[in-house]
Design a protein around this nucleic acid. Structure first.
Length: 871
RNA sequence: GCCGGAGUGGCGGAAUUGGCAGACGCGCGGGAUUCAAAAUCCCGUCCUGGCAACAGGGUGAGGGUUCGAGUCCCUCCUCCGGCACCA
């Protein structure tokens, strides 16, 4: 990288020299300049990325594409977009073939909500919102390749979202190869009936239907994913959510849990985001253990991460929904158990997870046998045990698990300590069963295993269980399969048919896209029947054999379209396939992905999942889609509060652009502070960076007459100016590469302040200034570049090189401390050696008087920093 | 409760990662220019004392390591974000 190259102006560029904007009085007329250059870039397709250009290294800079809301942009959006645009423009000047696209994540609830309220077709409102947001985004001068613009709602796009779904449907996960394979290669046990064979196949598809207890939100009329439920209420709108069994489409993301976890090591993401993902996947290793039910042949299987505490299991708890509950409950406990189960089913997730509440449960009347010591222990049901995790049943070790301890205390169940804590101060209470201890220690009350450490005991017990056929090692994840259907209108229809015989069949690929039908009524039915079920003509289909079938009426969640949009950008118009694999090999992976931290888990996990699946199918060549990830921070209102319409503190970029221009807005967004930080808006700060641009303008332009100032001349820069220029190029280069845009701008301000003091200004220095400013404030830079006599866009001009020698200071000022306190400052040559520095420091009058005749014990010299004299 | 991140002037923030705390910008004060204003330019602006030179203090609180700590270690406080009975 680096070196020299011929600047390339993309095809279609105008050969007409660009004349500087004729401007009365030559003032910095940002509105005029910005419109003019935006038009130029558009007309000349200045930022068109060239597929497969082997003459340059490629660089793919991606923004998280926006939802086109009716509110339009707020100033939070341009923060990430400006950062990525600076990188894109900088990389072009560095000689990269840059792909920098934008599009619209346009399916989703707000448009549908609006449709329900007003009867407006979401296609219409969505298009209007896209048009408005496109206008806004264009007014910021981002260097997107607009020819690659896409919308997830476009049938030409969602055709391929549906196609990918079909691939999930047509594949299974091979456990030995740990990858997806065609369902036709699924090994099927022999001797199955036709019906059983088909059921076996359906059970292995990566996209499958299941009757699951889902998060049903009556207010929204839809099922929500676990991730969309925050603390028992819907993420959107804070409506209560209850559990309800429903037929749903699922994607088997859990099969990819290990790979999603392992491959985090490959990506350059903030460690905190990686950890969030790892915690979300929540992989744990433990053991599954079978507990015989007294007087029956069945046993209850539990999952535990602490097989070493088996001797302390004094009772068991099953989730209320557990299949065995009905079978094992004794007649006298029947009524109580049924009542409890009904109560639990009616509870919302909020009721069930509220921390403040007491543990509840009822005894089933049945007993199990602890396999390690043959003790008889009671079997309870309780809603603190989740049906969806592990086996839906637990062994309770109240001495060593907080939740079990609470439950045991509430119902007066026995507590047997089996782990002796290492801290002496905890031992007495724990040994008496009065305190719960969840850490590692030494085994007690565990028969032959006494004295083992927790870690050792875990291994030994797992082996013992295996040897005796009572259990085995097991792995669990918190990650659940992805609930992939929604009872909404405004989403991708599933390319699936339900036959008269109750079979599920895939729509042939040549019938894609399956278009979303027009309907008159967007309201959910309230019972869970999706709006599409009302599109009678669309739903009912006659099959080639004359039989009847109905279409799937659920739609896909909003995440679907955003799972693969970064792949469509590389080949957005392809009608034959989702993307061309050669283009994929050229452009992928995404080199830099910028977006909000709110997508740290869901979007990024889902997209990684689809990418890995595509990898198994040979559709992509990299394991991970996004090499480097940066989260921009939130921008707060001027009052330091989160921006919201209700608070009335929303800042609209349109207004800022009107008063100060897009360059000022861009610059301010970057100058506010570190990209990742949360920071409050301040309109006076915009004014500040605007003044800086004014100064830069007046450095070059004669405001009275227009055109170049007479003071701009073809002269040699003086030594100081040259040094400051090279220092600035160095700093701006380094800071831009490190995404430290705020300090890069600060460095440019310092340089411009210096140049402003010069009576005559070297033309060549000003050119460099304009070039390093260009990624940050591209419009004014283009205009000044033209004024400096250039006839073509600077977008592909080589980035100025800095010269280390020229940037170096000749003299440096050092602080001289006596006993750590600064007494004087000395100036020495930058290359002065330690002896000279020491001698100069000791010769200082102030130092001599501070020493007051004492001989220095030691003199510490830190070159170009300070001298510390110890007495 | 658990897991992250952060606390630096009146404000946003900077500090080459252990070496002169407060760069740059905002705000504020003073001055120049102007009939006047806007704009622009110059000077000042961490706190305390002093007319000043200067002296002392200072990066959420307390302790520690070090010649030297905003930066490293321990304890605590506050704010922000995430998770939330995952056995």
């Amino acid at each position: 990288m680096g070196g020299y190259f011929v600047p390339v102006i993309p095809q279609g560029v105008s050969t007409e020299p660009m004349e500087p904007t004729p401007s009365r009085q030559g003032r910095y007329d940002f509105n005029r300049i910005e419109k003019r250059w935006q038009k130029f870039w558009q007309d000349n397709k200045t930022f068109a990325a060239v597929d497969g250009d082997a003459s340059k290294p490629k660089y793919y800079v991606l923004d998280m594409f926006p939802y086109p809301s009716g509110q339009g942009l707020h100033v939070g959006h341009p923060e990430g977009y400006t950062a990525s645009d600076i990188v894109a423009r900088y990389r072009r000047m560095k000689g990269f073939n840059v792909l920098h696209p934008i599009g619209w994540d346009a399916f989703g609830l707000p448009a549908e909500q609006y449709a329900i309220e007003t009867g407006t077709d979401p296609r219409v409102s969505t298009q209007a919102n896209i048009d408005n947001m496109r206008r806004q985004i264009k007014s910021l001068g981002f260097s997107y390749d607009w020819d690659r613009e896409l919308s997830t709602t476009d049938p030409g796009y969602y055709q391929w979202t549906q196609w990918i779904f079909l691939q999930f449907f047509h594949h299974y996960f091979d456990e030995t190869e740990k990858k997806a394979k065609p369902i036709s290669e699924l090994p099927i046990p022999t001797g199955l009936s036709e019906e059983a064979r088909l059921a076996f196949i359906d059970e292995h598809r990566l996209a499958y239907e299941a009757e699951v207890a889902v998060n049903w939100c009556p207010a929204l009329g839809t099922v929500l994913a676990n991730e969309e439920v925050i603390g028992g209420v819907s993420e959107r709108g804070n409506h209560p959510v209850i559990r309800k069994p429903m037929r749903q489409w699922m994607l088997r993301i859990t099969k990819y849990a290990d790979r999603l976890l392992e491959d985090l090591a490959e990506v350059d993401w903030p460690p905190s985001i990686k950890k969030l993902q790892a915690d979300w996947i929540g992989r744990s290793t433990g053991a599954e253990v079978d507990f015989k039910i007294e007087g029956r042949e069945d046993s209850i299987r539990v999952y535990t991460t602490r097989p070493d505490t088996l001797f302390g299991a004094t009772y068991m708890v099953m989730a209320p929904e557990h299949a065995l509950v009905g079978k094992i409950t004794t007649p006298e406990k029947q009524a109580e158990v049924i009542a409890y189960r009904e109560q639990a089913a009616r509870k919302s997730d909020l009721d069930r997870t509220d921390l403040a509440k007491e543990k509840t449960g009822v005894f089933t009347g049945a007993y199990a046998i602890n396999p390690v010591n043959n003790e008889k222990i009671p079997i309870w049901i309780g809603d603190y045990v989740l049906i969806s995790y592990g086996t839906g049943a637990i062994m309770s070790v109240p001495a060593h698990d907080e939740r079990d301890f609470e439950f045991a205390t509430a119902f007066d169940l026995p507590i047997i300590p089996v782990v002796d804590p290492p801290q002496p101060e905890d031992q007495a209470m724990v040994r008496q069963g009065k305190q719960c201890f969840t850490g590692a220690g030494t085994a007690i009350n565990s028969g032959e295993f006494d004295g083992l450490t927790t870690a050792e005991f875990k291994k030994r017990m797992t082996q013992w269980l295996t040897d005796h056929g009572l259990g085995h090692e097991a792995v669990n994840t918190k990650l659940r399969d992805w609930l992939f259907s929604r009872q909404r209108y405004w989403g991708e229809p599933f390319p699936i048919l339900h036959t008269e015989g109750g079979r599920i069949v895939a729509l042939p690929e040549d019938q894609l896209p399956l278009q979303l039908p027009h309907v008159d009524d967007y309201k959910p039915s309230g019972s869970g029947e999706p709006p599409l079920s009302k599109a009678h003509d669309w739903v009912h289909v006659t099959m080639p054999d004359g039989s009847q079938a109905t279409r799937e009426t659920n739609t896909m969640p909003q995440w679907a379209g955003s799972c693969w949009y970064y792949l469509r950008y590389i080949d957005p118009k392809n009608g034959e396939q989702a993307w061309d694999t050669e283009k994929e090999q050229y452009w992928l992976p995404v080199d830099l992905y910028i977006g909000g931290a709110e997508h740290a888990v869901l979007h990024l996990l889902y997209a990684r999942f689809w990418h890995k699946f595509s990898y198994d199918l040979g559709l992509v060549s990299s394991k991970e889609p996004f090499k480097k990830l940066i989260n921009q921070g939130m921008i707060l209102g001027e009052d330091g509060q989160k921006m919201s319409k209700a608070r009335g503190n929303v800042v609209n970029p349109d207004d800022v652009i009107k008063s100060y221009g897009a360059d000022s807005l861009r610059l301010y967004e970057m100058f506010m502070g570190p990209l990742e930080a949360t920071k409050p808006w301040n309109m006076q700060g915009v004014e500040g960076v605007h003044r800086f641009l004014q100064k830069a303008w007046r450095l070059i332009v004669d405001e009275d007459r227009g055109g170049l100032l007479d003071t701009v001349q073809e002269i040699q820069a003086d030594e100081t100016t040259l040094r400051r220029l090279h220092q600035t190029i160095q700093k701006v280069t380094r800071d831009t590469e490190n995404f430290a845009f705020n300090t890069a701008i600060s460095a440019m301000m310092i340089l411009v302040n210096h140049l402003g003091k010069l009576k005559t200004r070297p033309h060549a220095v000003l050119e460099s200034v304009v070039l390093i400013l260009a990624p940050y404030a591209p419009h004014i830079a283009e205009e000044l570049w033209a004024l400096l006599g250039h006839s073509q866009s600077l977008a592909y001009e080589p980035w100025p090189q800095f010269d280390d020698q020229l940037a170096r200071e000749k003299e440096v000022e050092l602080a001289v401390q006596v006993g750590g306190k600064i007494k004087d400052r000395i100036v020495v040559a930058a290359d002065a050696d330690e002896d000279l520095i020491r001698a100069t420091a000791l010769a200082s009058e102030k130092v001599v008087s501070a020493l007051a005749g004492q001989a220095p014990k030691k003199v510490i010299v830190v070159k170009s920093r300070l001298v510390n004299i110890l007495v």
